[in-house]
Design a protein around this nucleic acid. Structure first.
Lengths: 155, 155
DNA sequence: TTGAATCCCATAAAATACCATGTTATACCA
DNA sequence: TGGTATAACATGGTATTTTATGGGATTCAA
């Protein structure tokens, strides 16, 4: 029994005509071992679907409960958006979930999707959009941390 | 039960047609004793694969969780880059892991690899590249820190 | 009853576990 | 200390399992 649960890696999967996608096996294993469910919602910051464990949302709810003056009104509004949008997605015996129209549209996903691990969360992108986004992020990180610049290839 | 865990030494191993490599026995022992797994990702600063324990990434995820709230965008870029690239590698009963195309390509590894200890992390290099890199690092250290050769007074 | 959602079966490819062998390193004993 | 027995390791090959994915059958609700 492992003790660490992180969504990782970048996995490309097809979306069939019915809207079905295989949830990556690693992700399934996490939900299974923790006996919890996957929850998805529209990302508030990017044209992609965001997913996490139901546990994480539960934790968020508890935090809000306990923090009287900690959370600003804006953040409170955000929780409305999240919980209002979030939905549980149980996978079938072959490991697939069926994404909704709303989510697919928000992420511009039609026939293929890319799962991107984010640690405690993950995202689901339209493959082309993700390619661009990854390049953008990489460029930004390199710009802000010049010491990380990759050395030129040796010949 | 030992109490110190450091990736050390430089070990040369073959990579077969399937991309399988023996993880050095010492490295395996560490993962085993700590009941954790090895995680690998493309180095951001060099043409090599970088590896660490899943524990380390879990710590990072927790730090991010605590430092920012659920919706924060500050660390968003970084988590995408790190966790999106990282992948767990469980070794089989003979101690081998199977590196992915993406990683092998990034490190220009084909049929052999060199594991280089880095303490809490380690790197996997194409043997020729590592040879050059080691020479380069050595030269640079010598140039920048002449006191290592012949110590003299500070001014 | 019709469209959609869910379940079940089939299949090909890929990942993983397992077995066998030569080699090297380690332990043991005289 | 030297030599030998033993164990550990890397590595090639093969068998088994898992995974993604297409298609069809069944169920459910409007």
């Amino acid at each position: 029994m492992r003790k660490i649960f992180l969504f990782m890696d970048t996995i490309f999967n097809k979306v069939d005509a019915k809207g079905r996608v295989s949830l990556p096996a690693d992700y399934r294993a996490i939900a299974k071992e923790l006996s919890t469910e996957i929850v998805c919602y529209r990302s508030l910051s990017a044209p992609c679907i965001e997913g996490c464990l139901e546990d994480s949302l539960d934790k968020l709810a508890t935090e809000i409960e306990n923090a009287t003056d900690f959370f600003s009104e804006t953040q409170d509004n955000l929780t409305n958006l999240i919980f209002g949008d979030a939905k549980r997605f149980a996978f079938d015996s072959t490991g697939r979930i069926m994404l909704t129209e709303k989510l697919l549209k928000h992420a511009q996903i039609t026939d293929a999707a890319v799962f991107v691990g984010k640690g405690r969360k993950f995202q689901i992108w339209n493959p082309q959009n993700w390619e661009k986004e990854e390049a953008r992020i990489r460029a930004e990180v390199m710009k802000n941390r010049p010491t990380l610049k990759a050395p030129k290839e040796q010949e």
